[in-house]
């Protein structure tokens, strides 16, 4: 696992793919961040409906923690998963 590959930028297609990849990851981060502060959390700022006994706002944060994890997991597998990039 002595990989330096993930930072190397190659020509042509790879570079466009790189750009798309970084934009998508950045977008995911931005959405998750905004969901947890103003204005995103504003729309979830209520008690009803409760989710599994938790007030809605509490459940909202638990949900977005999971969304953030899931998105990063996908991004990791796409970029670093398998043998291709080892």
């Amino acid at each position: 696992m002595t990989s330096h590959n993930n930072l190397a930028v190659s020509e042509g297609d790879t570079s466009t793919m790189n750009k798309t990849y970084h934009c998508l990851v950045g977008l995911h981060f931005a959405i998750c961040t905004l969901a947890m502060i103003w204005p995103g959390a504003l729309i979830a700022n209520r008690i009803e409906p409760t989710v599994l006994g938790l007030p809605f706002l509490f459940a909202w944060y638990i949900l977005w923690m999971l969304v953030l994890f899931a998105g990063m997991w996908v991004a990791f597998v796409v970029r670093h998963g398998g043998d291709r990039h080892e």
Binding site: S3, M65, F69, M72, W73, F76
Partner: peptide
């Protein structure tokens, strides 16, 4: 970290750590 890949992997699982605080809340 032994590689950038390891760090990324750690960061993927990092949000799960926040779940530890749920029972404390």
């Amino acid at each position: 970290a032994d590689s950038g890949r390891t760090l990324r992997k750690v960061s993927v699982f990092y949000p799960l750590y926040a779940y530890l605080l749920v029972p404390l809340l």
